[in-house]
Design a protein around this nucleic acid. Structure first.
Length: 478
RNA sequence: GGGGUGGUGAUCUAGCUUGGUAUGAUGCUAGCUUCGGGGGUUAGUUGUCCUGGGUUCAAAUCCCAGCCACCCCA
């Protein structure tokens, strides 16, 4: 049973966000902080996303596998930077029944370590490479700060891919390619435009040489990371002793990558598109793409229902996810509101008027437009859904570009990030100390370093005035 | 790490200052009537008032301790 939203998006976006997810029956809270329930409506969207991403992964000859949930402490701590980064948020199993365990077991915060123990056993020759493995699983990171539905939970549903190669070049290009796959999923499935780039030294993954990231701009001008792909170099190969005999009979360490995308992507999409009436779903992920709402007046409803069922059959035949809501206990007005809340892209209203003229009335969730078309042009609905998807992406691409302010001077940089919560693009030195000072001064951090070989915005760092090394985008992180 | 708000039928909520039979709405079940943007009505239905302790003849209410959730700030 759905309830109207109490909070407007622009008044309090976090409150609105919780309300819209719960009210639309996508998600619900459980009794445990950071461990929400994915209701069928929400989980369906995850499945759509998962399927699309899984296909991309398999296209690249990466195979799915599954590794254990629990990781011995000794294994988890093998790579120093890695354990240092994750230790504060690891959940531990210390009891088996009533017996204290000899060695405590971590609930995986990510699976590098346990997978690489295996890789070490499996890889002996250059002929064993590359190893291309992905797993769909859940990980636990014990966030002590606030948690958010989808965006930041203690339990995270995601995939993690772990590949090992002979050469740095192969590994680097795999890391980069997977980052671009994430961009594709965000844009083509979720219709959310993202920026692609590299993480700074202090923002990169614990244990990585470098991290590629895709980041979306949220309506409140915070930026959120939608997926990351790491080039690990030999950082894990050395402590885990993953080496092979090369063609010239020499032992070499493998070059590794790991990459992951989580259900957070869905949260970003909801933040970007939802409005005061509820979710607004891009057709590609919408569990219901078209809902048919018959306007039943007393009298002869049999003919109308027959007509409506014909429409339903036609759309099902087109491969459209369609729902016929012919419940008589709810009024049409009630249903309109319900499906607005659930973000259904197209509502089909069919009453006596449409029956008489052999037509249907379409109401579009995203644009708000309404139009009546003849029954015989109904097959085109599939294309209409596609064009909605495209229009949504185009519109938010433009909106997100408009949010990025290019800045050259320190004062403007600080005030933009601090006051108006803007997203600032500027030339930067890339130093850890400089980033720390920027954070102190503005609350924002570098979200990504742009890769495009475009000209530096300035020769000097926007903040510290030293030599600029790259163009970077700064914003608060959500 | 610091702070704020809150926990009462399935859901939201009143009651708490000033202790004394648990308030209203929503939902749910069964009708009737409605139906082109959340309609009306009749009957029925639901409570460890977060937990533990204390004060008291009597605690949802006062006191102490704890748990949990949501939010904000660093």
């Amino acid at each position: 049973m759905v309830e109207p939203l109490k909070t407007r998006k622009r008044d309090d976006i976090t409150q609105w966000y919780n309300e819209v997810l719960v009210a639309s029956e996508a998600m619900d809270f459980s009794g445990v902080k950071g461990f929400p329930v994915y209701r069928p409506y929400g989980y369906f969207m995850w499945e759509v996303m998962q399927k699309a991403l899984d296909e991309e992964i398999k296209k690249r000859n990466v195979k799915n596998a599954y590794f254990p949930l629990l990781i011995p402490e000794s294994t988890l701590s093998k790579e120093k930077e890695h354990i240092k980064g994750f230790n504060p948020e690891v959940a531990w199993v210390t009891l088996g029944g009533e017996k204290q365990l000899e060695e405590k077991l971590a609930i995986r915060p990510t699976s590098e370590t346990i997978m690489y123990e295996s890789y070490s056993k499996w890889i002996k020759s250059y002929r064993d490479l590359p190893i291309l493995i992905n797993q769909w699983n859940n990980v636990v990171r014990w966030e002590t700060k606030e948690t958010r539905l989808l965006l930041r939970g203690r339990e995270v549903l995601w995939q993690e891919g772990h590949c090992a190669f002979e050469t740095e070049k192969e590994a680097e290009s795999n890391a980069r390619e997977m980052g671009l796959v994430y961009k594709k999923i965000m844009e083509e499935v979720l219709a959310v435009p993202v920026l692609f780039g590299k993480k700074s030294e202090s923002e990169k993954f614990a244990g990585a040489v470098s991290t590629y990231t895709v980041e979306a701009i949220l309506p409140n001008n915070f930026m959120s990371q939608a997926g990351t792909s790491h080039y690990l170099g030999e950082n894990f190969a050395r402590p885990f002793d993953i080496k092979y005999l090369d063609r010239d009979n020499k032992w070499r360490f493998v070059q590794q990558t790991s990459w992951g995308m989580a259900m957070r992507a869905l949260g970003i999409m909801i933040m970007v598109y939802g409005d005061d009436k509820g979710l607004v779903l891009p057709p590609a992920v919408a569990p219901i793409q078209v809902v048919i709402i018959p306007i039943i007046k007393g009298g002869d409803s049999e003919k109308l229902l027959e007509y409506v069922k014909k429409v339903e059959k036609l759309l099902v035949g087109e491969g459209i996810r369609v729902l016929l809501d012919d419940r008589i206990e709810y009024s049409p007005g009630w249903k309109f509101n319900e499906y607005d809340l659930k973000g259904v892209p197209i509502k089909l209203e069919i009453g006596e008027r449409e029956l008489a003229s052999g037509s249907v009335t379409l109401k579009f969730r995203w644009s708000g437009a309404k139009k009546t078309i003849k029954l015989n042009s109904l097959q085109s609905l599939k294309d209409v859904l596609k064009s909605i998807q495209k229009d949504m992406l185009e519109a938010s691409k433009k909106a997100s570009e408009d949010r990025i302010v290019q800045i050259k001077d320190r004062e403007g940089f600080v005030s933009a990030l601090k006051g108006e919560k803007n997203v600032a693009k500027a030339a930067w030195c890339g130093r850890i100390e400089c980033e720390e000072e920027i954070k102190q001064a503005t609350g924002a951090t570098s979200r990504l370093i742009l890769l495009d070989k475009e000209k530096l915005i300035s020769d000097v760092c926007v903040f510290c005035g030293r030599k600029a090394e790259n163009n970077a985008v700064f914003a608060k992180s959500y």
